[in-house]
Design a protein around this nucleic acid. Structure first.
Lengths: 202, 202
DNA sequence: GTTTTTGATTAACAGTGTTAAGTCTAAATG
DNA sequence: CATTTAGACTTAACACTGTTAATCAAAAAC
């Protein structure tokens, strides 16, 4: 009866092969410049085969995004342990977020910069998506900052959403308009993080 | 010899008619959901006619964007006169920017949230684009804030780019993820503006 | 050995932005 | 007035896109 398992294994391998091809192509060429046919060609299968393993093109991306976010989440949780003060931790987290976006611009774009194609998907803003869990980590750090009277006492959800907005702003602008006459990027990133945390202080 | 002029006038009228149709459709359905054929149908011309008046689809949008930005710029310049303190002026300007984005989400998206399709276009980051001129107004207000010792003395370009990043962040997130469990939008917008300006204070 | 299931493919649909070639009308020229 | 010419517009087509229905071959189940 091991034949069924072998088949399952084979299917899983092909599924991963598709994801690998998609990951590489999306990262290099950008989501909307990669066609299903291109992905199929890369793995020497017919385009329609992909549809036996994934609902549609956007599902490919959603899988890859969860993958990436799970990595970002790990990074966040690691930071939480290796930092001295919660403020230090928060700043390093914000840094990590921006770096993450700049390093995976195409995945970042489709995660946060284009309308979700399936907004009714229960997974999208669900409580156990990687994005949500990452957000919860930020909130807990903010809470610690308030407890230690580093930040003045305000709603932690509001603060976290505000922080996210600011940090998303610089990340997305640097991604979309790399040729804009920015001042030195690192200095700008540093400045945004400093300003926005400074504005929260007690 | 008035025949040439009449022809020119006719051409200009059709050009405007195309822009009107595009403006309405883009605003309602979103740039990428509107095809050249749809625009053509709306004005009862063949799709190819549009190409006699505009380079390609993206040029339609660029024209409409300049239009909108010119309105935002007027708003900014008006504010500069009717405000008491430069800080008050700055905050109102940031508010106006966010409202502008939320009111014209489809135009905002293509201006700031998708890769420019012709980044080599000299008009794009040129010194007399509406976007650039708007940015210059912000810079002048920031400068005034520093002069009056409201803000501590830092590079005005850096501050302005940072402000833009933060404000763009909240704008774009509210546009792209309207279904995210935000706290009260107005409160969040208010909070971001307060935090980010607060962080710059002397 | 026959039937059923499964995995993959071919062909097609309906749509996209865009271009080359052709048509048709109204003005300019002889 | 007749003919040429210039300009505005359209038709047909190309090379794509995501996606689906129908088909086919091979392996598994009976």
């Amino acid at each position: 009866m091991g034949v069924k398992e072998r088949r399952e294994r084979q299917k899983e391998i092909l599924r991963q092969e598709i994801l690998n091809a998609a990951r590489e192509l999306f990262a290099k060429e950008g989501y909307e410049n990669v066609s299903m046919r291109k992905i199929a060609e890369k793995i020497d299968y017919s385009p329609t085969t992909i549809y036996l393993y994934f609902e549609d093109k956007s599902e490919l991306l959603r899988c890859l995004c969860e993958e990436n976010f799970s990595r970002l989440l790990s990074r966040f949780e690691a930071l939480k342990k290796e930092c001295s003060s919660p403020l230090d931790c928060l700043k390093k987290g914000l840094h990590a977020y921006i770096e993450f976006g700049i390093k995976h611009p195409n995945h970042y774009r489709v995660s946060f910069m284009v309308h979700p194609e399936h907004p009714d998907d229960p997974d999208h803003y669900s409580n156990d998506s990687m994005g949500h869990r990452t957000f919860e980590v930020v909130k807990s750090i903010v809470e610690e900052c308030i407890k230690q009277k580093i930040f003045r006492d305000q709603d932690t959800t509001m603060i976290s959403q505000g922080l996210w907005a600011a940090i998303h702003g610089i990340t997305s602008l640097l991604i979309v308009h790399p040729d804009f006459p920015w001042i030195d990027r690192n200095r700008l990133i540093e400045h945004v993080i400093e300003t926005v945390t400074n504005g929260l202080k007690a």
